[in-house]
Structures are given as C-alpha cells and as structure tokens.
Amino acid sequence: MAEYRLEDLARVSGVSVRNIRAYRERGLLDPPRRVGRTALYDDYHLSQLNTISKLLRKGYTSVHIAEFFTSMRQGTDLADILGLQRAVLGPRSEPAEPVESLHVDPDSEEGRKLVAYGLAELVGGRVVMADAGAADILSRSPDHLLYVRALLRFVEAADDSLDDLAQAFVTSLTELYRKRVGTNYLPRPEEMDELRRVVQDYRALGERVMSARFDQATRRFMVASATDYTAGILLSGEWGRHKPA
C-alpha cells in the first residue's frame, strides 16, 4: 500500500494541505501513521478524501459527514464508508520490512525497475526485496538476475490488463451500491455488514475467475511453445542447438 507525506497526499487527492488538516481536526480523516516527526498517510486516507470531496459536492455538510463517520467508527470497523475501502483493499497492516538482499546491481536496469515498481528498496546501497514471498523464491533461485527479469516481465505485461480489471471491478461495485442503497443515500451502520459481504463476494469471484483464466491461458501457451520447440528439432535435426542448457 502506498504511503504519502502531507504534501504528496494533497497533490494526488487535489485537496489542499489546509483542508486536509481541517478534516483531521474535525474527525473526518483518520490520524496518520507517525514515524518520528513525520506523518505518513496511505491509500485509506486518499480514499477517505475522495469520499469526503464527493459528499461535499452532493450537498452534504462537513458536520453531517463528520457525524456519520463517527457513528460508523463506533458501530463497525468500517470508518471508510461509500468506497468500502477495507473490504476492497483487505485488512489494514503495517508496511512490511524489507526481507532479502539480492545480488542485483542497484544501478542496473533491473535494479532501478525493481525499486521504481515498488518491488524492492535500496538499503545501504543494496537492492532489498519488500515482499517476503517473492524474496523467498528469488533466494532459492540459482540465477537471481534471470528470475528478476522474469518478475519484471510479469509486472510489465500485467499492468495494462490489471488496470482494466480494476476498473471493471470498481464499476461493478458502483452499480451494486446504487442498486442497493441509491445514489445519494448514506447507509445505516446495520446495513454495512451486508454491503461488506457482497463486496468481498465480488472480489472472491473476480480472483477465482482470473486465476482460472490465467491457468487456462498458460496451458494453451505452454502447449503451443512445446509444439514449436519439438517441430524445430524435427525440422533442423539438430538436438544440441535446441536442447535447454
């Protein structure tokens, strides 16, 4: 999950620093995470700001919004209403500690991309993976660079498709919300459990479908690749040239 300093949050949200501070004081915005004297905000705060801005444009007053958020915090763990952020983004957790140093030159193209994509951090001049699962796989690999290139290829190939999938998911949630509670209606606390359950069902359905489709597509490409590989051997008659290292 991305984190933002106050000025960065103001830039990406379009809400001024002054208004963000005012929202915090009035109880509209959750407190930031403190690291020393630095206040760090995350995607939940960004979503809260987007929700507040939309409600204000629809004619709700800041007092009304603050009262509603307060009642939600007291009634359920969903302080972030309308966007249903916790149901969509999953449980809120502290940022993971970097877990594994890679044998990758931080000044190389691969090293720069890992950091730029948020997959790794630079710690003491070393490239350190931020995800424990990915770090475990890479640590077992005989050739870190080969695996890193595959990882980067996966990320770059998935970016556009994932944006389309995420947009379809959010559009479906928007339609669901409007059908269930209406466009300008703020749901009561007792209605939130059902809405959260439906959102989680939508997400589970999407994950299952995408996993199955990815598996099917992978099988098709593997069969095609094996066929091309075998055909190349038969046509050339040179096994050594095609034999994997």
Rank of each mutant, 00 (worst) to 15 (best):
P91Q: 12
P91F: 10
P91E: 15
P91C: 01
P91D: 15
R92D: 10
R92F: 12
R92K: 15
R92E: 06
R92Y: 12
R92C: 03
R92I: 05
R92A: 08
S93W: 03
E94H: 08
E94D: 13
E94L: 12
P95D: 15
P95Y: 12
P95L: 14
P95H: 15
A96E: 13
A96I: 04
A96T: 01
A96L: 14
A96C: 07
A96G: 11
A96R: 12
A96Q: 12
E97Y: 07
E97S: 13
E97P: 00
E97T: 11
E97W: 05
P98Y: 14
P98F: 13
P98A: 06
V99W: 08
V99A: 06
V99T: 08
V99I: 14
V99F: 07
E100I: 01
E100Y: 05
E100S: 11
E100W: 05
E100L: 01
S101K: 08
S101H: 03
S101E: 14
S101V: 11
S101T: 10
S101F: 10
S101Y: 01
S101D: 09
L102I: 02
L102M: 05
L102F: 08
L102V: 01
H103T: 03
V104G: 05
V104I: 07
V104S: 06
V104R: 01
D105I: 00
D105F: 00
D105G: 03
D105K: 00
P106R: 01
P106Q: 07
P106G: 02
P106Y: 02
P106F: 08
P106N: 09
D107Q: 01
D107A: 10
D107T: 00
D107F: 03
S108A: 03
S108Y: 04
S108E: 11
S108H: 02
S108M: 04
S108G: 08
S108P: 01
E109D: 15
E109V: 06
E109L: 10
E109Y: 09
E109N: 11
E110K: 02
E110T: 04
E110R: 01
G111H: 00
G111W: 02
G111T: 00
G111F: 03
G111Y: 09
G111P: 01
G111Q: 02
R112S: 14
R112T: 03
R112W: 08
R112C: 10
R112K: 13
R112V: 06
K113T: 11
L114A: 09
V115T: 08
V115G: 07
V115K: 12
V115W: 03
V115P: 05
A116K: 12
A116F: 11
A116T: 07
A116I: 00
Y117E: 15
Y117N: 04
G118P: 05
G118C: 10
G118E: 11
G118S: 09
G118L: 09
G118V: 05
G118W: 09
L119T: 05
L119H: 04
L119G: 11
L119N: 12
L119Y: 06
A120G: 08
A120N: 05
A120Q: 04
A120H: 11
A120P: 05
E121Q: 15
E121L: 15
E121N: 11
E121C: 13
E121Y: 04
